[in-house]
Amino acid sequence: MTALESLKSSAKAAAITCLSFTAIATTTLTSSAALAWEPTKSVEFIVPAGTGGGADQMARMIQGIIQKNNLMKQPVVVINKSGGAGAEGFLDVSGSNRNPHKIIITLSNLFTTPMATGVPFSWKDMTPVAMLALDNFILWVNSESAYKSPKEFVDAAKTGGANSFKMGGTGSKQEDQIVTAAIEQTTGTTFTYIPYKGGGDVAAQLVGNHITASVNNPIEAVAQWRAGALRPLCVFDSQRIQLKEPIAEGKSWNDVPTCKESGLDVEYTMLRGIFMSPGVTADQTKFYVELFQKVRETDDWKDFMAKGAFNTTFKAGDEYKTWLAQAETTHRSLMEKAGFLAK
């Protein structure tokens, strides 16, 4: 056999192997389609934020719950892709067409990053799976300050003059600044917004009196509330948090009024939802919806939700899509009014 011939024959052999592989693959697919779809290799769980943040915590929590309760045969692998305010992570998922082994957890940057930076992606480029929970926002002040209600706080900010009050928050043109902008738009006051790296930093800066107020998530500031260093004024949800266990000074989360009922008409919650790559089958999406329903039923998850005072609404399918479309519109109008859209 000449070298060329052997090369040809090996190429042919390769082609045949290739074909047979496809054949096997097709048969496995068709046979397993009768059963439910299941991941056949490890699932990448993308976090479009750095290690240690809220989304990262939740993702690793889910990873641990799945592992501990054997909810899936294949392992879950958490990967942080935080570049460009999470754009890197979203582009990775939206760019990997029909890959059922890749899911992503979202935070507000799903909507804000494309609007603020102009990096082209949208939730419509991915397959929505489920809403796991909504993260609450609370208006906090230092407990040494005189403000006992949102009204007192807003009035003082108005009398203090423009930019006299300093609002700390996580990141720039993201959830915390959007809530701040929403307060400005409803009340006509203006704040100086100081972006910090993480929620823990913001809470500590508020304790140290370097800023006047913050809109920290409950979990980021609850320890300082219990220690008597911070005071919650109101929660930016449509209803009060349904947790009646006392936290500090005999008060529970349920005793914190909504901002709306106390005259500050601003509502904002942040999506903690799951998306998949575009083009995946309904079967594959169904697998993950069921998986996350199982996760939600575990005690560990319920405990985590209570500790963080989350809004535990669950949505999937069309209901979820409707919510997303509406949330996108809300974000766009808020950001447009605040002048946060990329030029």
């Binding site: 750095g50 290690t51 240690g52 943040g53 990262d56 690793r60 979990i219 219990r226 220690a227 405990d303």
Partner: peptide, 15 residues
């Protein structure tokens, strides 16, 4: 920062 996340996951509140 990661350990902090761990504390929260185990149900402890640093502070």
């Amino acid at each position: 920062a990661v350990l902090l996340g761990g504390l929260l996951i185990w149900g402890l509140q640093p502070g």
